[in-house]
Design a protein around this nucleic acid. Structure first.
Lengths: 360, 360
DNA sequence: GAGGGTGATGTATGCGCATACAGTATAAGG
DNA sequence: CCTTATACTGTATGCGCATACATCACCCTC
């Protein structure tokens, strides 16, 4: 890697000015074909690649969108053992035990949606994990706008950043802030699910298995549950029966706890799929039948809900569309900074499968 | 959003020079505490965020790593219907039919590994989808190095970019290029798998169900299969029995074709999990039993291989570690540009489950 | 008390590009 | 043949920051 060539080198080699080189890239129609050919030849010849930093600086726009995710707890298991060699190879034939599934399809899907939509608009996507102030240092300064999951960035920091670039929050409820918000209809989805269990399966003994108490998603879903019960004239609980942390292993634990306590309701409406799958694991392990003895429902619509036995009745939220909608909103905001704060809600779909007794 | 504040504004407000402001961020130990406090107060006051572009330009390093993925075929289903409203909500209770699983855990996992490792080293990750020359325009110029999946970027373009920044290729075999490579041990993994089927289950009538003919992964896996057969003294096929495109639906098709042709081998060694799962679907649908009538094995170790019925015996490749190792290699390369081209191979793990007859 | 550190800060410059503005050449119009 | 429009191209400047170097104050040391 010798010295990186710049516009100046290209201009020299092509016998034109740097302005012309720049124009070949930015406004090709303003350059004659002959000149374009000469410049392009020089570009190829030198291996020239325009500097994004310089371009962004001069053009006063980064051409990138920031995506800020919560820290991947515990995922950071240290570096892998790399075998740098030719021939040296490790064959492991032993472990018949299983690996833990890589939970967060949710994030992956949102990421994918963001990526797709951003790319459609010629924007790059820069990903960051919220960890201390690095978002501030490393991300906020290099993007035109930021998308973040709710509760990911400390409020003070986010406010500071929002003075600088527009911020779109995914999956949170507005709390007096001025950010744009994109979410799914947790309330309506869970309400519909609840009423389905009551109406279609005649169950009036339902309980809600929740997630973290500080999750706005969980809050809304519980609210939807309560609204569903209310509509059916069933008495409302003020709190979820139990709370987990949205993981499958916590779900298993909660399931076991219910069985041990000896009071398993006729239907368990869970706040997300992972929890529901864990509950399912626990119930089945103790010999209970789903849906015959206990009905279990989830929320999210992750792939695993489709391959479980029985398959999980759940509310599918369009995770990929979430990222997509966030990008659209961000771009509209960039186009019109004065627009009032937006709140977008994506519709959800109730998927009826075996775990509630449908398709049985 | 009034005019974005710069170092100059901060310097003025704090009554110092811009060099001092810069130092507060880059070399805090070289600034007295009193000055630091004044500057930080000004930063908060103005809502200052340092410009990544200017910083990168001046520092001659982007502080970011590029990750280039193949186009997500057919994923681009057009924008979502967003409901911008208060109260207007769409409840969909109808469709009991399932959604297509979002196949590519592989990419997500690699992305995640990249993200984690890059962030550990204070580097941002910028993602791009290979589509035409946009990688060149939008990505290569704004990162310090690039990671790409093999066969993702056209060779000419990649060579051009590699003159400018280091490139690490994931999952390809070296083909006379000078890039660094990171891959998993496809050959050894498939060889071990093949020998397991022969040794442990006494099967000598095996066939290989392959993927795209131009996939280096598939090529290596088939080679491993052949080496396994050779070691067992079984005659080698020169070509896979059938080829799909690595998707589950193609797998189903191939499975059906085998059944219809009336010649289903005792064991089907598939080149990846999705294919194997599709084959499984097709076989089970026609009443064949797995593993009693036919043994099926996969490769990759995606989550779905763990929740299928029967669960899939497969070779797990450490997808997340792949991204991680790629980042490590890239960083080492940045530290030592003259280092000879590296080839890293990550070990794989054979997971024995029901679909081959183990754990039955 | 002169010489030589040492720590804190300021000055000046350049990173590579986009672009406003100012040419220049050529064609068209009168 | 002169004017004016048109199509290209060049010159000059600034984007916001990092940093080499210069400066200055102050403390040691012998």
């Amino acid at each position: 890697m010798p010295k990186t060539p710049t516009v100046y080198d290209v201009a020299d080699l092509a016998g034109v000015s740097i302005a012309t080189v720049s124009r070949v890239f930015r406004k090709p129609h303003k350059v004659s074909q002959a000149t374009k050919d000469r410049v392009n030849a020089a570009v190829l010849n030198l291996g020239y690649v325009p500097s994004g930093s310089a371009r962004s600086l001069a053009a006063r726009r980064a051409g990138a969108i920031g995506l800020c995710f919560p820290d991947f707890d515990g995922i950071d298991g240290g570096p892998a053992p790399i075998v740098y060699a030719d021939g040296r190879v490790i064959e492991q034939l032993d472990p018949p035990e299983d690996v833990e599934p890589s939970g967060d399809l949710y994030l992956s899907e949102v990421m994918l949606g963001t990526e797709i939509e951003a790319w459609r608009h010629g924007m790059a996507v820069t990903i960051a994990v919220a960890r201390g102030d690095e978002i501030f240092d490393n991300l906020a300064g290099r993007v035109d706008g930021m998308i973040t999951l709710s509760r990911t960035v400390p409020e003070g920091l986010l406010a500071h950043i929002a003075r600088h670039i527009p911020v779109v929050v995914i999956a949170g409820t507005r709390a007096g802030d001025d950010y744009d918000h994109i979410g799914t209809d947790n309330v309506a989805g869970m309400q519909a699910m609840t009423r389905h269990v009551v109406d279609a399966h005649g169950v009036r003994d339902l309980a809600f298995v929740g997630g973290p108490a500080d999750s706005p998603d969980d809050h809304d879903r519980f609210e939807g549950f309560r609204m569903g019960l209310h509509a059916e004239g069933i008495e409302l609980p003020s709190e979820p029966l139990l709370r987990g942390d949205f993981t499958r292993s916590h779900g298993r634990m909660l399931g076991r706890r219910l069985v041990e306590a000896g009071r398993v309701p006729r239907a368990l409406v869970c706040s997300n799929d992972q929890t529901a799958l864990g509950v399912l694991d626990a119930l089945l392990a103790t010999g209970l039948r789903v849906p015959e003895d206990v009905i279990v429902t989830g929320f999210d619509g992750i792939d695993a809900s489709q391959t479980s036995r029985p398959r999980l009745t759940t509310v599918r939220q369009p995770m990929r569309e979430l990222g997509r909608a966030a990008v659209d909103t961000l771009l509209r905001r960039l186009g019109d900074p004065l627009m009032p704060p937006q709140t977008g809600t994506l519709p959800v779909t109730v998927l009826l499968r075996e775990s509630c007794g449908c398709l049985a």
